[in-house]
Design a binder for these strands. Structure first.
Length: 281
DNA sequence: ACCCAGGACTGAT
DNA sequence: ATCAGTCATGGG
């Protein structure tokens, strides 16, 4: 039994494979399978129809997770009009939407992400889910709760291939579990305040904090600077200029991309990742 | 063998 | 304020 959802200005593949989520994979017949919360979802897009292998009461949750209630046209309209590179990235990946993911899963996943390749991040996340997450049938596991990680041992986390990130993930889980930071209130805080709060956590700097704020806390303006986007920004906006400082980039980002800078960042990021891999029209 | 990977942190200039 | 070294581990 499956549901049909009408969609527009939406591209499932770009949305799920642009690097913001780590638990989605392709299955046979064009289906995507992923674990969200305590459910395994199966999704497939046929033009303006989204097929969902699920019960009808889950549809609204899927629409919310995929940000289908938002107008992509309105968001893109806030982008700088004279930015040809950004416009091209948007055209090439039209329909990419920033997801509304669960904050703890997002935080933990990106703590695991530092100096790791995306395939390895996905592997680590699956190992964590298998070992510490609740089984939800068909060999799927929910992402582990904060408490489950907080109670884990350093050795157990090392076995999930976290390496030097193990102690950061453990300490972060324990801090959140003990209420050392206001983790549940992030969504209702000012952007700057929420950022300050997140970087108190061990293993969480400005980049990972912005991942959490954009991908799971609804802050459209959160622009994360990683090695890929830094390379793209330097090439596109600071040509023939070496040694562009992190501070200069921040200044440029704040004045150029507007209130949905995070969305612009994700389009530029995905375009940079797929550069020279796809034929340009 | 060597190098790098969606970084963060420390201790030097 | 920048900068190199360090932190584990798997893959090219």
């Amino acid at each position: 039994m499956y549901q049909k959802i009408n969609v527009s200005d939406f591209d499932l593949a770009s949305t799920l494979e642009c690097g913001q989520a780590f638990r989605w994979s392709r299955a046979n017949g064009g289906w995507f399978v992923g674990v969200v919360g305590r459910e395994a979802w199966r999704l497939r897009q046929e033009n303006d129809i989204l097929l969902c292998h699920c019960s009808p009461e889950i549809v609204s949750g899927i629409q919310h997770y995929l940000s289908l209630d938002r107008s992509l046209l309105d968001i893109v309209a806030t982008f700088p009009a004279d930015d040809a590179a950004l416009r091209d990235a948007v055209r090439r990946h039209w329909g990419l939407r920033v997801l509304r993911q669960e904050p703890w899963e997002t935080l933990a996943s990106f703590i695991a992400s530092s100096t790791k390749q995306i395939v390895q991040i996905r592997q680590i996340v699956e190992l964590l889910a298998h070992r510490f997450g609740e089984p939800i049938g068909n060999d799927f596991h929910a992402f582990p709760t904060v408490e489950a990680i907080a109670r884990a041992s350093h050795e157990q986390l090392l076995e999930c291939k976290l390496g030097f990130r193990a102690k950061n993930l453990l300490a972060t889980a324990q801090m959140i579990d003990s209420g050392a930071i206001k983790f549940d209130a992030l969504r209702s805080m000012e952007y700057g305040h929420a950022l300050e709060e997140l970087v108190k956590l061990p293993g969480v700097g400005e980049k990972i904090a912005n991942c959490v704020l954009l991908f799971s806390c609804g802050f459209d303006q959160a622009f994360l600077i990683d090695v890929w986007i830094e390379r793209a920004l330097c090439r596109l906006y600071f040509p023939r200029k070496r040694n562009v400082t992190h501070r200069q980039l921040r200044e440029f980002i704040g004045s150029h991309f507007g209130p949905c800078a995070g969305w612009a960042q994700q389009y530029l990021f995905f375009a940079e990742r797929t550069r020279n891999k796809k034929t340009r029209k």
